[in-house]
Design a protein around this nucleic acid. Structure first.
Lengths: 269, 269
DNA sequence: CCTGCTTGGTTCATATGTTGAACCATTGTT
DNA sequence: AACAATGGTTCAACATATGAACCAAGCAGG
């Protein structure tokens, strides 16, 4: 691992839950020497990526980040165009929703939105989504670039007893995702969290990310799942459209089939 | 310069004007070897700070930045609370306005706002403000932490024939800023750009940044200057208040004196 | 006042990771 | 076909990162 990577890694320890970190604390978190960490922090401070609270001497993220974020959003507008559909999806389903974007072989959280409907709800507090264990990840594997598969297989970390742990099981999960147009992850990342996700596409037709609804197992009935799926279709179409892309025909077809089947199996009373 | 700094420096070449940069181009911009730059980019890509456009193979800023920006804004809310006052200031003065924040010894651009009043207007296209040559910089020097002075003196780069080029001249400019509560830079950074700035403060009473109006020399009359100053006071109070701070008494007094004097000298007809 | 604990920060010999000229593979242009 | 771009890779030479040990400052308790 390069020195630069190690330096950049430090930034990932700053989260809304812990926005200010002291030198010693950061050493423990990163598992690195104090001198090393200090020099890394100095490099980050020089370039404006962190700054030191003059009162507490602790470090926090710096202003340079804001500028880069602005440039990024101008270059690849993603946050714009996600907010409204994500909120609408949360309102319609009464569950927590989130959107993620694929960069290289990593699926990053872009935004999450909780519905106030239930007091027990899922909170998304991870920054990147494991590809084999989440609904969004399955979408990425099913509709994203090929090399993703090699990366996903590498560790196949078992988060829960239900986590997919064999290459075969993963392949069939991916096939199911391709067939229905929805990623499905029932307690495979966190027990009692059931998620359904739909893919998102950019103007070039590539998979750009995923939108997902995370529900609590105890209230995840087939009716809810069907409702989530219909609203997911809308959300995915809206976001993809806002990003200047269109849903590929094969995905639209898969959705149509999936919805038709669920109607056959569970006819509305 | 550390390898990490060099890596981070690469990010600063991505701007709204040039959001996608190829490897060779970036080598030229950074003046570094191709292999070096490539490894740096890989480190940035691993951590999500840049991503490669799969079509053009060129690099652009990545999604990790957005998350950090969100955390930063939650930690130190600055953008919120600047937008409205800055816009109001631009409307009231008919000139380009901008806000900057101090981090360590560097004054970073936070946001700029152009007024559509005149078709000839100032455009802020720098990312950091030289302390000795800009109105905002003088505010930082006058009201900011002491060590800033040592840094400002180091190069004293002459941007225009009017740029302050001696330690004595700088000292008296800072004293003038302290006395009036306004930083004044008439063509010292760019010829024909006249700027007035007021300081901004955070909850701990430290100088947090500056708010500034940049006008075109040919229309910069004493009347306009007076109007800019009164509106700057409002903007500075508003932003500082939005950041949870208050204007120190000495600054308020300086403003009161400055406004009274300008009224004596230039009585309203 | 001292002792012990924490914190942020610095030093310097060691060796690890970084560097860049030269290299290859593709692509588009003349 | 030859040329000149592009992105990307290799490896010996060397510069730079590393971390144990160190200092100074602040704080709590006896």
């Amino acid at each position: 691992m390069s020195a630069a990577s190690k330096t950049l890694e430090l930034l990932s320890f700053f989260t809304p839950a812990q926005p200010e970190i002291g030198l010693s604390q950061l050493c423990r978190l990163a598992g690195r020497d104090k001198a090393t960490t200090h020099r890394h922090l100095q490099a980050l401070e020089e370039t404006g990526f962190v700054e030191q609270n003059p009162l507490t001497k602790r470090y926090r993220l710096g202003p340079a980040i804001l500028q880069l974020a602005q440039t990024r959003e101008l270059t690849v507008p993603r946050k714009d165009g996600v907010d409204a559909p994500l909120r609408a999806l949360a309102d319609a389903t009464g569950e927590t929703t989130h959107a993620s974007i694929l960069s290289g072989t990593v699926l990053y959280k872009l935004m999450a939105c909780e519905s106030p409907r239930h007091s027990i709800r899922v909170v998304i507090d991870i920054e990147t989504f494991p590809l084999h264990a989440t609904a969004s990840g399955l979408c990425a594997l099913a509709f994203g670039p090929g090399p993703l598969l090699d990366v996903a297989r590498r560790p196949l970390t078992p988060f829960t007893p239900s986590t997919i742990d064999s290459a075969d099981a993963l392949t069939s999960a991916i096939e199911a995702t391709r067939a229905t147009g929805f990623g499905r992850a029932l307690g495979t990342f966190e027990t009692d969290v059931h998620s359904i996700a739909a893919p998102l596409f950019d103007p070039t037709g590539f998979l750009a990310g995923a939108v997902s609804v995370a529900s609590v197992a105890t209230r995840f009935t087939p009716e809810l799942e069907a409702r989530i799926k219909t609203h997911l279709i809308t959300a995915s179409r809206d976001i993809t459209h806002n990003w200047g892309g269109t849903i590929p025909a094969n995905v639209e077809n898969a959705w149509a089939n999936a919805v038709a089947q669920s109607k056959d199996l569970e006819p509305t009373p």
